[in-house]
Nucleic acid binder design. Structure first.
Length: 771
DNA sequence: GCAAGGTC
């Protein structure tokens, strides 16, 4: 029997479609990646009985990136990203093992039916799937067709069966338009982001942003928020006047009328109209019109509309959202709301006024969406032409025009949708991005208020090249891409054309960056004027300043050099001790009061001193053979949790001493009330860990017979075993994991680099490092 | 470390 493989875009769709097509008679099993399931059943295909295997991917299988060496920000000029830097497709999520999974399932299959979503992205994923499975599928005779595309727009029996009975072919052009979009977004976004980030971060100390990103969607999104901010800033309130008139008939409560001229901007003119109206004490009913009107039930909810609604009253309460979606759905199936609109036109003197109200005829859908219902108090009094009302009050009221408020998230979603910025799935991501990048903050009522950084960036783009921030450029690119999809333009030509344009824009931007910089100077402080003096530079021996704003770093204004620091933690001076290699004063990094801490050399942190070290390493990973702060001096033994780390004594942790892994987050608490804890040169005969010498407080020593000193292995020594809070750690230590034989696996087999053991022969180690 | 687009 032949086999048909069918692939949907996500696991839940595979399940729904399999249920429909198998009429509920399918088996299911998990695929090798644990995320996708495979549904199997027997059925008919192209006039033969076949076995169906329905499964799915999880979105895109592949994603585009530059080849490795072009991801080095220090060595690559961002301008190279427009043409020189080659790109490659990598598996989008290596954990999912999607290519392998698809190949395992496709092996031996004769046909494939592609059930990817029916949009351009889905078409692109079709070819990602085909690239993975075609090499392993059965090869039929050359003329036999084996690739089919199902086109469907809803998950209903009729739609799915209809798609199955009218299979087509995947559309290469649509897929190519997505390939072009991916390459454009990657090259443009990365080039601008890297350039901006490196330029401004090196100059200003209080930007508070570790990344100054640019993107064809996120930047226009920010642009909308700043545009509103500018309107608010440039708003000048204007005074205007309205006539307020109240009339009544008999014992009815007074009606407030609207002036037909609405408002005037000149007080004298307003007063003149009041005087004219005041010549009469009665308001004559000029006409009464009654119109039956309907309030339309809502359209079916789509994702963007749901986002808008959820952002403007609902908040993050899942149940309320569920209730809203349910009510909305029922409302779409109910009748429109019907009401009677009554408008009464009045004349008071020669001035015209009116008043209108609504009376409910039938609630229709507002019965399930009561917040949209017609309020009872809008009902109007009975009257007819010629009736007269008594004027209760008529006066001129002064008012002021008020500025607009910051953009609400709901308004922003509307703007993005209108201009084609992002998709239903990516709109929230872009909004989240500009928040995380510190370009806008979310205020009460989910209003988006741009930060100084956001404002300066957008104003800078306006000065240099407004198209970089205007929404029109994205739409223009999308239009060109659409031509590829429609087969009316060549993929290569469109891509090249757009890249050329943006390459020129990029060079112009780089040449004009001082225009944006002028704005930055107003809002931010030069790096040399930021931060507090902390530790001394090893080159000039002057104090360097520690900059707290993200990304935290040290800056030497004399040498005009900036040195990176670890993020997410606190930095303080470490007893004015110096690195023996470069004379920089060490600093102490700590993750918190009871957490991990270790010293680091600000210079070595960015410029690894030894071959086997990488950027971002502290003294606890430093392989200096003799420095008292290095791994070699303070390392105790292999980590109890991870395979590649070493537990290193935290020399600042006394009197509650602890050691911490230099790779993972393991912290092992050991001796309390000890004056001194030293790591000895000798190793344990049993487990190879370094011996530890402890000097306890005389009055509080836990050692037998009042001894204050002991030396031994923290993992094996019986005296220490009873004292040290290391029971679980001891049991996990390698020596106890199976007769001293170390586990294989992660982190092993990479020669010296992966070996967490301290080198024993210091001279040999020295020789190795200084080759 | 970067984009935007899928989806988990």
């Amino acid at each position: 029997m032949r086999t048909v493989l069918m692939v949907a875009e996500k696991p839940s769709l595979a399940q729904s479609i399999a249920k429909i097509l198998s009429k509920g008679n399918c088996t299911s099993r998990k695929g090798l990646n644990g995320a996708c399931s495979v549904y199997e059943y027997t059925g008919n295909f192209e006039g033969q009985t076949v076995r169906f295997k329905m499964t799915s991917v999880c979105g895109h299988v592949m994603s585009l990136d530059f080849i490795g060496k072009y991801n080095n920000w220090d060595k690559v000029d961002p301008a190279e990203l427009f043409s020189k830097a080659p790109t490659e497709k990598k598996e989008a999520n290596s954990k999912l093992n999607m290519v392998k999974f698809l190949q395992v399932e496709a092996r031996g299959c004769d046909y494939v039916v592609l059930w990817l979503d029916c949009d351009k992205e889905g078409e692109n994923i079709c070819f990602e799937v085909l690239d993975a499975i075609q090499p392993v599928m059965n090869k039929g005779c050359a003329r036999e067709r084996s690739i089919y595309r199902a086109k469907f727009s809803s998950i209903t029996d009729t739609d799915i069966w209809n798609a199955m009975n009218h299979l087509g072919e995947p559309n290469r052009n649509e897929a190519l338009s997505v390939d072009a979009r991916q390459e454009l977004d990657l090259r443009i976004g990365c080039a601008f982001t890297r350039f901006q980030t490196k330029y401004f971060q090196g100059k200003y100390g209080n930007l508070d942003s570790s990344l100054i990103s640019f993107g064809p969607c996120q930047t226009p999104t920010l642009g909308f928020c700043v545009e509103r901010h500018d309107k608010i800033q440039s708003f000048k309130p204007e005074t205007y006047w309205i006539i307020q008139a109240k009339v009544f008939k008999g014992k009815d409560s007074p009606l407030t009328l609207d002036w037909n001229r609405v408002r005037v901007f000149d007080r004298e003119v307003g007063q003149m109209f009041v005087n004219l109206a005041k010549t009469s004490r009665e308001a004559q009913v000029e006409s009464v019109t009654k119109k039956e009107k309907t309030k339309q039930r809502p359209q079916a909810l789509n994702t963007v509309e749901m986002l808008r609604v959820a952002s403007s009253a609902l908040g993050s309460d899942g149940w309320r959202l569920y209730e809203y979606i349910t009510r909305h759905f029922i409302a779409t199936l109910t009748q429109d709301c019907k009401y009677l609109q009554t408008t009464i036109d009045f004349n008071i003197g020669k001035e015209a006024f009116s008043c209108s109200g609504k009376t409910l005829i039938s609630p229709g859908y507002t019965a399930v969406m009561p917040w949209q219902g017609i309020p009872l108090e809008e009902a109007m009094p009975d009257c007819e032409r010629g009736d007269s009302f008594t004027v209760d009050e008529i006066k001129l009221v002064e008012k002021q025009t008020s500025p607009p408020d910051y953009l609400t998230e709901a308004e922003l979603i509307t703007l993005m949708e209108k201009h084609g910025i992002g998709t239903d799935a990516s709109i929230p991501v872009h909004i989240n991005n500009i928040c995380q990048r510190n370009y806008v903050t979310v205020e009460n009522g989910r209003k988006l208020k741009p930060t100084n950084l956001g404002i300066v960036l957008v104003h800078g783009y306006y000065k240099i090249d407004a198209e970089l921030v205007l929404p029109t450029i994205r739409s223009a690119v999308e239009k060109q891409l659409n031509l590829i999809a429609l087969g009316r333009a060549n993929y290569q030509q469109v891509l090249q054309h757009a890249l050329d344009i943006f390459k020129r824009k990029f060079h112009y931007f780089v040449d004009s960056i001082t225009s944006m910089d002028e704005l930055m100077e107003v809002s931010f402080s030069p790096i040399a004027a930021t931060g507090k003096p902390l530790s001394r530079c090893g080159k000039c021996h002057r104090f360097m300043k520690c900059i707290q704003a993200k990304p935290s770093r040290l800056h030497c204004s004399h040498c005009d050099e900036t040195y990176s620091l670890p993020q997410n933690g606190a930095i303080k001076l470490y007893k004015e001790l110096r690195c023996p290699l470069d004379d920089f004063e060490l600093v102490l990094w700590t993750s918190g009061a009871r957490g991990k801490s270790y010293p680091l050399c600000p210079y070595c942190f960015s410029n690894p001193p030894f071959r086997d070290m990488k950027k971002g390493m502290g003294c606890n990973e430093c392989t200096h053979p003799s420095c008292q702060h290095s791994l070699n001096s303070l390392g105790i033994g292999q980590c109890v949790e991870c395979d590649s780390g070493v537990l290193v004594l935290d020399p600042t942790s006394g009197p509650k001493w602890r050691m911490a892994c230099n790779k993972c987050n393991v912290v092992v608490h050991f001796f309390e009330h000890a004056h001194k804890v030293l790591v000895a040169q000798e190793s344990c005969d049993n487990c190879d860990a370094s011996l530890v010498a402890v000097d306890f407080n005389k009055t509080r020593t836990p050692l037998p017979a009042g001894d204050t000193q002991h030396r031994g292995c923290v993992f094996c020594d019986p005296v220490f075993q009873d004292l040290v809070e290391l029971k679980h750690a001891t049991m996990r230590h390698s020596i106890h994991r199976g007769g001293g034989v170390r586990r294989g696996g992660r982190g092993r087999g990479k020669g010296r680099r992966g070996n967490p053991k301290k080198p024993k022969d210091k001279m040999a180690a020295l020789a190795a490092y200084f080759v």
